[in-house]
């Protein structure tokens, strides 16, 4: 297997089809990264919330002003 391009600029130009090739690959990266990170943030928020709820429910004696932020994700 040999690379099909001699230089970086040749690679970027894609024989005149650079715009189309990079639009396609760019949108693909956007969709995949977007799907991954939006889910990751949703999951993080959810776990912070649920853990905070659980901690306030079980430890009634030590009712301090816990919030999802100050509980440090635990």
């Amino acid at each position: 297997m040999v690379p099909q391009f001699e230089t970086i600029s040749e690679f970027l130009a894609m024989g005149g089809h650079g715009l189309y090739v990079w639009l396609s690959y760019g949108s693909t990266v956007l969709v995949l990264a977007g799907s991954y990170f939006s889910l990751r943030f949703a999951r993080q928020r959810q776990l912070e919330q649920l853990r905070w709820q659980a901690s306030t429910n079980t430890s009634d004696q030590q009712q301090t002003a816990h919030s999802p932020k100050s509980s440090n994700g635990v």
Partner: peptide, 27 residues
């Protein structure tokens, strides 16, 4: 992506635009 963009040979009719196949067909 690296294989499809850099190493796969050009299409004799479509040139480099055929590399779009590697993201379009799987999607």
């Amino acid at each position: 992506v690296v294989w499809g963009l850099v190493y796969a040979p050009q299409d004799y009719q479509q040139g480099n635009s055929f590399r779009i196949m590697y993201v379009h067909v799987p999607a």
